[in-house]
Computed example of a mutant assay.
Amino acid sequence: MAEIRSNAASVEFRDVTKIYGKSRTPAVDDVSLKIEAGRLVTLLGPSGCGKTTTLRMIAGLEMATAGQILIGGVDVTTLPATDRDVSMVFQSYALFPHMTVEENVRYGLRFSGFAKQEVAERASAGLDLVGLSDYGSRLPSQLSGGQQQRVAVARALVLEPQVLLFDEPLSNLDAKLRRHVREEIREIQQKLGLTVVYVTHDQEEALAVSDRIIVMNNAVIAQDGTPRELYDAPANGFVADFIGEANIFDCAIESVEDGVASVRLGDLTLTLPARGFGPGPARLAARPGRLTLNPHGTPDTLPGTISKATYVGSHLEFVVSTGLGEAFVVTPDVDAPFQAGQAVGLGFPARGPVLIGG
């Protein structure tokens, strides 16, 4: 019986630019990145940021205008899609409606030089890997959306590609099913040690599945790091606001010593990692769940008034008006004794705020 194996390879972009037609605005602008073999890396960003163009250049469906693309250390910049050892799972799944599930999975293998018996064994192994071994004789129309997605994954996996690409793979599924299928994709990736490049605009999805996230904005990389690095220490306001929600305040760095900044925020003085910033005007970001509400007049808090309090089942959400603008605060304490109109003190715990760039 054939087994699905990993031929995982690294992916590297060296100063890659993509310009369509006579446009003067690059879709991807001088991007350099490296994705290690056997890792799941997500390209995350809003529509039009360049993430899908980047994915399509890895696949060979778009050609770079400038720069180099390497897969497994081999320059593939000018190679067409048919000559790259890459498989892609499309947003639409792209299943053939007149073919059975097994025929869909076999389809790519028919053109790969395998003997008939090998094709059958690989297709069977692929369906078994995604939990659809009993569905081979069904048509795609007889499957749920999640099952169709798994067929598309099996069809890609049986080719044992060096790189597996996902283009917004969960966008056609409802919220509960999205969570289930993304867990399956991550499990298969880790089990086989696949190199996966995954495109989404859903930050929660990216945080859940990725070894690394590359956040793109306006055709360039805004930040590259692990999910925790991007959430805890965003480089700038765009990343802070795109990866989860963030409160952003103007502040002033009064002094820096040994990498630690003394920061003035209203009447408060905070001690924060300087992150390379020097004295002068600055900004800080604070996640809603990392701010605290305290009784009015509590020392070392920012005075404010609750303008809105909302119960959403698992937590409470508050909008607090302060002299520095509105703050959004979330607490899991659904019995917190605060209500709209109440004067409070907004607290900034040590792990709360972080200095950010523009």
Rank of each mutant, 00 (worst) to 15 (best):
G50M: 02
G50R: 02
G50K: 01
G50H: 00
G50T: 08
K51M: 05
T53W: 03
T54C: 09
L55G: 02
L55I: 05
L55M: 08
R56M: 14
R56F: 12
R56P: 00
M57C: 08
M57K: 03
I58E: 06
I58C: 05
G60Q: 04
E62A: 03
M63Q: 15
M63E: 15
A64Y: 00
A64Q: 02
T65H: 13
T65A: 12
T65Q: 11
A66V: 04
A66H: 12
G67V: 05
G67S: 11
Q68Y: 09
I69Q: 04
I69F: 01
I69P: 02
I69S: 04
L70I: 09
L70G: 08
L70T: 10
L70F: 07
G73L: 09
G73P: 03
G73T: 06
V74R: 15
V74H: 14
V74M: 13
V74W: 03
V74Q: 15
D75Y: 07
D75K: 08
D75R: 09
D75F: 01
V76M: 04
V76H: 02
T77N: 05
T77E: 06
T77S: 11
T78Y: 06
T78M: 13
L79I: 00
L79N: 04
L79S: 09
P80D: 13
P80Q: 14
P80M: 14
A81R: 07
T82Q: 15
T82Y: 13
R84I: 08
D85L: 03
D85P: 13
D85V: 06
D85M: 04
V86Q: 11
S87I: 12
M88F: 07
M88R: 02
M88C: 07
V89Q: 02
F90G: 10
F90E: 08
Q91L: 08
Q91T: 05
S92P: 09
S92H: 14
Y93G: 03
Y93I: 06
A94I: 11
A94H: 01
A94L: 07
F96T: 06
P97H: 09
H98F: 04
H98T: 14
H98I: 12
H98V: 08
H98Q: 14
M99Y: 09
M99F: 12
T100Y: 11
T100P: 03
T100H: 07
T100G: 04
E102P: 00
E103N: 02
E103A: 12
E103Q: 15
N104I: 05
N104S: 08
N104V: 08
N104R: 00
V105F: 00
R106P: 10
R106T: 05
Y107F: 15
Y107R: 05
Y107W: 13
G108P: 01
G108C: 09
L109W: 01
L109R: 03
F111Q: 13
S112N: 12
S112M: 15
S112D: 14
G113N: 09
F114N: 06
F114V: 10
